[in-house]
């Protein structure tokens, strides 16, 4: 796995020397900051109203702010993940650097894992910036940190799973825009798959609903470490990377 780390380091260097990483983190922080501001404002207004009516102030910052905010943040990831993963292989194919990687004494899987891991690290770095907002909550209030940590774990798992899919889609084309659009469509579909279960209880609807990526985040968002959902994310990661390997292999047989 030493080779995977070499590929990963180069990939990260490439994200951070180009404007991509900085642009993404700016946009992410801006949007997340707006979410935070809104939820906080609403929370403050609500507490004041309740106090004026002589009732107990709502005490649970976790329930009132952190949980809905992180649900939104996990949804926000769907928009950012295609932007992170689209270049992984498409750019290599266009620049011809894929020939360097595939003729070096490294296994395909090492290249794939390296690239996917770099993308996951970048995603973690993005959501790390969202945690700055929560620092304010810890300074002025007393939220419970454990559900927050579990929610972040869920977000990272969800991001890693979607990035594995994005990595696969990126091997299919040499055009980054196509890879990005394809990944975005896949992410969005996986999100809305759960809708069908609200009006249909047939078997296929249940399967479709199980496949939905966002529904698996819910328990993490509540602060529950659910092995069922963890297994789902790990399976998606494994499947995505497996397909990537097959796709890269077919590239060799076809081209």
């Amino acid at each position: 796995m030493k080779n995977a780390w070499i590929v990963c380091r180069r990939e990260l260097g490439s994200y951070f020397t180009s404007p991509i990483a900085w642009l993404l983190v700016t946009m992410y922080s801006l949007i997340f900051g707006y979410f935070f501001w809104n939820y906080l404002g609403h929370f403050v207004l609500q507490s004041m109203e309740l106090q004026m009516m002589g009732e107990m102030a709502p005490t649970s910052i976790n329930e009132e702010i952190i949980r809905p905010l992180l649900a939104n943040a996990s949804f926000l990831g769907i928009f950012f993940i295609p932007l992170i993963s689209m270049r992984l292989f498409a750019e290599e194919k266009r620049n011809g650097t894929i020939e360097l990687l595939t003729t070096s004494p490294v296994r395909d899987m090492e290249v794939i894992v390296g690239k996917w891991f770099a993308a996951t690290i970048l995603y973690c770095w993005l959501i790390f910036y969202s945690s700055i907002s929560f620092c304010f909550l810890f300074i002025y209030g007393h939220p419970d940190w454990k559900p927050l940590a579990v929610a972040y774990l869920g977000m990272i798992l969800q991001g890693a799973a979607l990035l594995a899919l994005g990595t696969f889609i990126s091997t299919l084309t040499r055009n980054q825009i196509v890879a990005g659009a394809g990944t975005f469509a896949a992410c969005l579909l996986l999100w809305v798959f759960s809708w069908v279960s609200s009006y249909n209880s047939a078997g296929w609807a249940a399967v479709l609903s199980y496949l939905s990526i966002v529904s698996h985040y819910e328990s993490f968002g509540r602060g529950v470490l659910s092995s069922r959902d963890g297994v789902y994310y790990l399976s998606v990661i494994f499947l995505g990377l497996f397909f990537t390997a097959r796709s890269l292999e077919s590239l060799r047989w076809r081209s």
């Binding site: 490439s14 020397t17 620049n95 011809g96 650097t97 020939e99 360097l100 003729t103 004494p105």
Partner: peptide
């Protein structure tokens, strides 16, 4: 491991 290969288009990462 025993081959050095220069493809038709040099495989350079232009941002490095």
């Amino acid at each position: 491991r025993h081959i050095g290969y220069l493809p038709e288009m040099p495989p350079l990462y232009l941002e490095m």
